[in-house]
């Protein structure tokens, strides 16, 4: 599915700079890119909200209010209802509270899943690119298999074979998402290992492991930062799709994807159940994308001019 490809595939990883980035330069480039600045603020606020969920949410996100939380025909209450700022869902649960706890779940899944995927993707990419030969052929064929497996079907299959849990969702997303990064990193390493400073340390007798740690990995950091940021956006989207298909985080836990999924059944009578979590999701994913774009711009432009 095309939405699983990070937006930064258009960034040429080879152009990501070697120059260390100083705090002042970061700030200057942020002031030139207000969208990124706003995105960072949004994400920081979101993280704070997710952390402080128990303090901020007016109700228990799982608590149903069969009496005051539902209308006379048992329908969900619209936003603005006293006591339920953003209204309620079909079971009479407070939407605002679910939204706040949902932020927690979506962010944790997005960040942890993508973190695991990054670690694995970098490992596979570096090893395949550096050693080449049979190692590379085997690793890249495995990557091909995973990529050729229809993504959502793979998720479905993996979750079907396990039980539904947040942990499994994280693992599944990570298992799928590492391939993109592995391919990108492999490409970068293939060209990096031919750079003269890498060859030089080989001729000095530096071990393969030391070369990878000291001379290859540090040069991948800018690209990893960019792709990780964009990857969080993709992971959050995948989670929402899984929830929509009914194989995401276990019920009754709230994630934004799960809330949209709940909303999809009732959207004709309670469209806000669909709109509110959807807009939160889009804003978050957009913020991650914008920050990723900004990072790649900034790291690109700090490429030393000498080369």
């Amino acid at each position: 599915m095309s939405e699983a490809i990070p937006a930064a595939a258009i960034v040429d990883p080879a152009e990501l700079g070697d120059k260390p980035v100083r705090a002042r330069e970061v700030w200057r480039s942020l002031t030139r890119d207000p969208a990124a600045l706003i995105s960072i603020i949004v994400l920081v606020l979101l993280a704070l909200i997710a952390l402080a969920a128990p303090l901020l949410s007016p109700h228990d996100p799982l608590q149903t209010f069969p009496d005051q939380g539902l209308g006379p025909q048992g329908q969900p209450l619209p936003p603005g209802t006293p006591g339920f700022l953003l209204g309620t869902d079909a079971l009479g649960r407070d939407l605002l509270s679910r939204l706040i706890y949902g932020a927690q779940v979506s962010l944790i899944i997005g960040i942890v899943a993508n973190g695991l995927a990054t670690a694995f993707g970098v490992l596979v990419g570096v090893v395949a690119g550096y050693f080449g030969g049979v190692v590379e052929a085997v690793l890249m064929r495995i990557t091909d298999v995973v990529i050729s497996f229809p993504i959502l079907l793979l998720c479905t299959a993996l979750i079907a074979v396990t039980t539904r849990s947040t942990f499994n969702v994280i693992i599944v997303i990570a298992l799928i998402y590492w391939t993109t990064l592995a391919r990108i990193i492999r490409g970068m390493v293939v060209s990096l290992k031919e750079r003269e400073f890498v060859v030089a340390s080989r001729t000095l007798g530096l071990s393969h492991r030391a070369i990878m740690w000291r001379h290859i990995l540090p040069h991948l950091v800018p690209a990893i930062i960019v792709y990780t940021t964009l990857g969080v956006a993709s992971s959050i989207l995948i989670e929402s799709a899984l929830s929509f298909l009914g194989i995401g985080v276990p019920i009754p836990q709230a994630s934004w994807g799960q809330m949209i999924s709940d909303g999809s059944t009732y959207f004709q009578i309670a469209p806000w159940m669909l709109f509110i979590p959807g807009i939160c999701l889009i804003v978050t994913v957009m913020a991650f994308n914008l920050v990723g774009d900004w990072l790649s711009d900034m790291l690109n432009s700090s490429t030393p001019t000498a080369r």
Binding site: M1, E3, L237, A241, L274, F275
Partner: peptide, 21 residues
């Protein structure tokens, strides 16, 4: 950017809500 960030199923539901329903 919105197009990239919106979950397709959400977009689909939205379209159904307005254009169909």
């Amino acid at each position: 950017l919105i197009g990239l960030s919106a979950p397709p199923f959400w977009l689909g539901l939205l379209l159904i809500y307005y254009f169909a329903f």
